[in-house]
């Protein structure tokens, strides 16, 4: 539908699309270059191209990185599962049982978005070490990461579930399903894509987190903290290889998210987002 006055409108639209294109270039040029350079012999000036997988060999041979990978995976999985559980229960509670306390609950779940990661990191370090007498460990890192993860997961699940029709659950209960049975047989099959999406996001967030994990773990390495250590000595080929792989993981996650959200949209009969 074109409205009258459309020449100016056309220019505005063109200008906006150019800005969008430039933003993609700004965001993706470094990423694409890193991936390209990670396969090159000379990472600084990889022209003319001469391909090699030396950088990856270097990365995989380094035992520090494999320990770090294991720890990052543990933190990511733990925080992802914890975040998804808390967030899903919270969203269902808020949507199904409206109450005057709803606003407070929303604030509690979303508050972590407005606290800097550095602050989460140092405060849980200080709290655990001085008041609980616990040295940094993977569990405290999982918990601290799950704070932020819960907020992200809450937003994702909320955005999808506001369109869920709870009358389906009412119908199931009229026909004799207990609340748990009803969740298992009616709700979950319909909403699992958004839950899985929330898990993926909170997983990748914790997996790649530097500041929260760093202060909670001390000497225990994670991929970002090892990368941080490495970057202090300048860009190395193995850092490029790691960046390329991590970006690959993130894009796999987002591709999956995209498919899930499309599925979710189909399920809820909603065309937007």
């Amino acid at each position: 539908m074109t409205s009258v006055g459309d020449r100016a409108e056309g220019w505005r639209r063109l200008a906006m699309s150019v800005l969008l294109g430039l933003l993609y270039v700004f965001l993706y040029a470094p990423i694409l270059f890193v991936i390209y350079a990670s396969f090159s012999e000379d990472i600084v000036w990889p022209f003319p191209p001469s391909f090699t997988t030396d950088a990856y060999a270097e990365l995989f041979d380094n035992s520090l990185y494999s320990d770090a990978l294991k720890n990052s995976l543990i933190i990511g999985l733990g925080s992802g599962i914890l975040s998804t559980l808390f967030a899903t229960a919270g969203v269902i509670g808020v949507l199904r049982f409206p109450s005057r306390r709803r606003a407070l609950i929303l604030i509690a779940f979303l508050a972590p978005l407005f606290v800097a990661e550095l602050l989460i990191g140092i405060s849980s370090l200080a709290f655990n070490a001085r008041l609980l007498g616990l040295p940094g460990n993977l569990f405290s890192a999982i918990a601290a990461n799950a704070v932020e993860g819960t907020a992200f997961a809450f937003l994702i699940v909320l955005a999808q579930l506001v369109r869920y029709d709870w009358q389906m659950d009412d119908a199931a209960m009229v026909f004799g399903a207990s609340p748990l049975r009803c969740f298992w047989e009616v709700t979950l099959p319909a909403i699992w894509p958004s839950l899985f999406g929330a898990f993926l996001i909170s997983f990748i967030l914790a997996f790649n987190n530097l500041e929260i994990s760093f202060y909670n773990l001390g000497a225990i390495p994670t991929l970002p903290s090892v990368a941080w250590g490495s970057l202090r000595f300048g860009l190395g080929p193995e850092l490029f290889a790691l960046a390329a792989l991590t970006n690959g993981l993130v894009f796999a996650v987002f591709a999956l998210m995209y498919v899930l959200m499309r599925t979710g949209i189909v399920k809820f009969g909603y065309r937007g987002v």
């Binding site: 965001l27 040029a29 990423i31 990472i43 990368a227 941080w228 860009l235 987002f254």
Partner: peptide, 19 residues
């Protein structure tokens, strides 16, 4: 547009420095 954020600070800075 949202995806690059999730790569984490360090690797994004490394990529930025590469350019």
């Amino acid at each position: 547009l949202a995806a690059p954020f999730f790569t984490g600070v360090i690797l994004r800075i490394a990529a930025l420095q590469g350019i």
